[in-house]
Amino acid sequence: MVMPRIFFYGKIYLRYFGQYFKGRLAYRSDILIQMVFALSTQITSLVFIVIIFNHIPDINGWSYGEILFIYGFAQISIALFSMFFSNLIQLGRFYILDGNFDRVLLRPLPPLFQIIIERLDIGSFSTLAMGVGALLYAAAKLDMSLSAVECLIFFGLVLSATLIFAGLVLILVSLTFWIKDPTGALAWPLMTVREFAKYPITIYTPALQVFLSWILPLAFTSFYPATLFLGREDYVLYVYLTPVIALLIWGLGILVWNLGLRRYESSGS
């Protein structure tokens, strides 16, 4: 009881994590299938980049190494999102429609915390490895060397990028408290729009750039933070905005979530 709450939640998270692994080990072939699935949806864009750069030296002034670095950064944040937050997408169908949300409310833990920790997507390990591989290859190609501090900043930015995407998904799936969404389809277009973030946003029209920066800030999940390591001075301000955006999106997400939760508590469905 004396133990601070944060340690308590940390411990519970790790316990769930451990139990989830134990449970999954019973279905080893499923993990393999999840990996193949994650890889098959994500590898095509890598193949695309590799093939195109056989023919041209740059895209819109961005070299092969730079494009790969941005791609790798995006891929890492996508993989981390899928691994740790993708259970959010189940809210509409599995939790609300199938009635599992009541069970969540009956446990003495915050409901959002419970839903996030109830399932991990281990299959995304394959795409994480792919992203890290692309990033390391790009770094080598660009003769990049990072100091310890820069590494720390890198991890901070990857974390912010992951949280931005997770926050956007949270806002979207919280809408299922109002809109019935039996297929969980509400989050699909978002999964596709993040394809836009795998490439430098300078290739899009100005209107689309504004959209990807300030309305659906996906550019902050890859392009802007990645530029810090590419030595591009033009976007420094955006780099430092990345953690701020992450906080704002999560603040908004939690607000919408709480409103939705209140609605659920008064309607029961």
Binding site: I12, R15, K22, G23, A26
Partner: peptide, 20 residues
């Protein structure tokens, strides 16, 4: 409808609940 976790052994579920 069960309150326990589908994939894990009963005792594991119980110890998880013990912690919660």
């Amino acid at each position: 409808r069960t309150q326990l976790w589908w994939d894990i052994a009963v005792i594991e579920a119980f110890t998880l609940l013990r912690d919660i």
